[in-house]
């Protein structure tokens, strides 16, 4: 899924623009084909991201480019996901050593790929690494991500302390993702997710056999990354809303007020509002003898 303001464009119609974009930042191997293109979602879309892929019987490799003024918005992550989907489509045709590989020439991309399960295979220069992901790791990652997502919807709720902590720091700008992640990580929700998920013995043995990794440690690592990915996606959406969509939007809230209070003169309307008209139920609406008033 792409953040607001972007869309996937047809690669066939945008191959020249994508090649031009790639030429500015990376060297794409001549064996690679254009697989996906991201553009701005407007009448005259500009190409701002592209994915190039190729594969041999040993490995599936890919290159990603995102225009510098559109970075840190989740576009690279979206393109990596397209690459992973394509890898999964062809993986069964090859033996178990078939893996993904990518040449990385910036540290942000290296960090992103690590969070998605890739490992550094070889460090070529300070900012140049070759990274890989084994097929078994990929499979495990995807199995766990799916399960985690189901669990997360039921379990993941900030605790009361977690929320009140934010009010204490409420003031200036958008907190960094690192700050948000530190808070989320220390909440009970993540521990609940970890406790609720478990591999059975067969899955553990198979994973250990195929990767030589300790399944317990790996599972924890995997879950933390899967949770982190979910949190990061949501964070990017929220920051986009605040930076690009929020100002000037209509805003509503529903309140319950005592019958003897004139809604036209009710002075203090509270802090919990929504930019969706039906976004919230009447807040703390359990008081008796109240009437609901939807305020715009």
């Amino acid at each position: 899924m792409l953040p607001n303001g972007y869309t996937f464009l047809n690669p066939e119609d945008n191959d020249e623009a994508a090649a031009k974009l790639a030429d500015r930042y990376i060297r794409v191997g001549s064996d690679k084909e254009l697989e996906a293109v991201i553009g701005t979602d407007d009448e005259r879309p500009e190409v701002v991201g592209a994915l190039f892929t190729s594969y041999t019987k040993e490995a599936f490799s890919f290159d990603i480019v995102v225009r510098h003024d559109h970075r840190r918005k989740g576009l690279a992550r979206a393109l990596v996901r397209v690459a992973i989907d394509q890898f999964e489509d062809v993986r069964d045709a090859f033996d178990k050593d078939f893996h993904m590989e990518v040449d990385v020439v910036n540290q942000d991309m290296e960090r992103l790929l690590k969070s998605m399960g890739f490992e550094v295979d070889k460090r070529v220069g300070k900012d140049h690494v070759q990274m890989t992901m084994e097929s078994a790791v990929m499979q495990a990652l995807h199995e766990m991500t799916r399960t985690q997502k189901k669990q997360a919807k039921k379990i993941f709720r900030p605790t009361q302390a977690f929320q009140s902590g934010f009010q204490a720091v409420a003031s200036k700008g958008v907190p960094s993702f690192e700050e948000v992640w530190e808070e989320v990580k220390s909440s009970d929700s993540v521990n609940n997710i970890l406790e609720h998920l478990a591999w059975d013995e067969r899955q553990k043995s198979q994973f250990e056999y195929e990767t030589d990794k300790d399944p317990e440690e790996f599972q924890e690592w995997l879950l933390e990354n899967a949770v982190k990915e979910e949190v990061e996606n949501r964070y990017e959406d929220v920051v986009y809303f605040i930076d690009h969509e929020m100002d000037g939007e209509d805003c509503w809230r529903a309140v319950g007020i005592p019958k003897n209070v004139d809604p036209a003169k009710h002075e203090d309307l509270g802090i919990y509002w929504s930019n969706k008209e039906d976004g919230s139920d009447e807040y703390w609406g359990s008081h008796r003898n109240t009437i609901p008033a939807s305020t715009r």
Binding site: F166, K172, V184, R234, E249, S280
Partner: peptide, 29 residues
Amino acid sequence: MKIDRRNVDIPGTVYARMDMSIGEDESEV
């Protein structure tokens, strides 16, 4: 009302919207 970011508790809004269960549905500001 229309939103004016000078009146918005930005960190509070970010964290409210991070709630996986209700954050997207409520679209809190």
